[in-house]
Design a binder for these strands. Structure first.
Lengths: 195, 195
DNA sequence: CCTAGAAGGCTAATGCCGTTAGCTATAAGC
DNA sequence: GCTTATAGCTAACGGCATTAGCCTTCTAGG
């Protein structure tokens, strides 16, 4: 009989797609093998272990995620960049919940871990977006962490179905972005912003 | 030989404590049995399954969590309540990461699920806290969701070790709370707050 | 005090899952 | 066409959650 013709990239991509369907925790070697028309042990010719599979899915996911954010922010600044980037993230997480979970579960294994540049790409995009607000340099780290907290928190709560009334979740999201935008505009270093 | 003298509450409490040590995903029936000085199958006299154990840990956890938030907000209003409640939540999550994970992983099984009142208790406390800001009634839901998103996002990112420089995480947290407090104060319905 | 019955603990066994060892057959290069 | 690397296979192991069935220990009622 002919071979399935798998290679590592195919296995990782199929694993990511499967994780989006059944959840990252529901991803199993057996399920992935079945999906690829192959017996379970055959997967070990392409990945070292299930942990290795998850880690490689995380690298793929974070790079795709970074692409989405970068493209959304491209050519925009200030409020426009915030709204566009935040919506891009929200949409990406809703469409790829398994990938997002893989990225969150991933653990950096060493200084040459390909996870590190992928993470860096995401942070760089968010930082660039914040630059449009001309914040005091000492506040940039705090603003970046707040932004990550809000967007990550909202995305995970929404993906987990933790918001009761589904209807106006969109409204809540844009309200939140307005809130952040107003606050960041008020936080510029020039005038007397002391309360 | 004498009996171990376990009952359901003891098993759940030990499971919660163990989850805080090894992580909710690292919690296993075998590990919990060993911790209780008992063989694995004996646990099934007190819980129906591992899923049942996790669910009951979640109920316990959410009620303890609700207690912590309520106590922290008690007798305070506005900014004081926000800061006190938020710090209580952050501290509780750092001290009980397994319980918090159990609460997040839990799924409501029916309209009589004891998870529901526990969740309601938490939401009620946050709502009460927000009342001190005298927001426009139509904005309360959005503000509540934003608050949950920020605090949940920050807590999970911190618990996962996703903030690089450990040093000034405290600073970032208080900066974030200041930001929220200022924004909420500016959002009161009475005066002309249109920018 | 003694006895019946409920209930907590045990051992043994099943099935699923990740993983490894070793074999076979295929595809690619000389 | 032959050789060699290798993708895929079967068989097997160990760990896990779970179930069945037994036995012993507490406890309630006589």
């Amino acid at each position: 009989m002919p071979r399935a013709g798998l290679d590592r990239a195919t296995v990782i991509a199929a694993g990511a797609a499967l994780a989006d369907e059944v959840g990252f925790t529901g991803l199993s070697m057996g399920l992935l093998a079945e999906r690829l028309g192959v017996r379970t042990p055959s997967l070990y010719k392409h990945v070292a272990s299930q942990a290795d599979l998850g880690h490689r899915i995380a690298v793929l996911a974070l790079n795709e995620f970074a692409d989405a954010i970068r493209d959304a922010i491209q050519g925009r600044a200030g409020r426009e960049a915030l709204v566009s980037g935040a919506h891009a993230m929200r949409r990406w997480v809703l469409e790829h919940p398994g990938r997002y979970a893989a990225g969150n579960a991933a653990v950096v294994t060493g200084s040459d871990d390909p996870l590190l540049p992928a993470i860096q790409r995401v942070l760089t995009s968010w930082s660039a977006m914040l630059h449009g607000y001309h914040l005091d340099p000492g506040q940039e780290i705090h603003a970046l962490r707040m932004l990550r907290s809000i967007l990550h928190g909202f995305a995970t709560l929404e993906a987990a179905g933790s918001f009761q009334i589904a209807a106006d979740i969109d409204d809540s999201f844009t309200w939140m972005l307005d809130f952040i935008d107003h606050g960041l505009n008020a936080n510029q270093p020039d005038p007397l912003t002391a309360r």
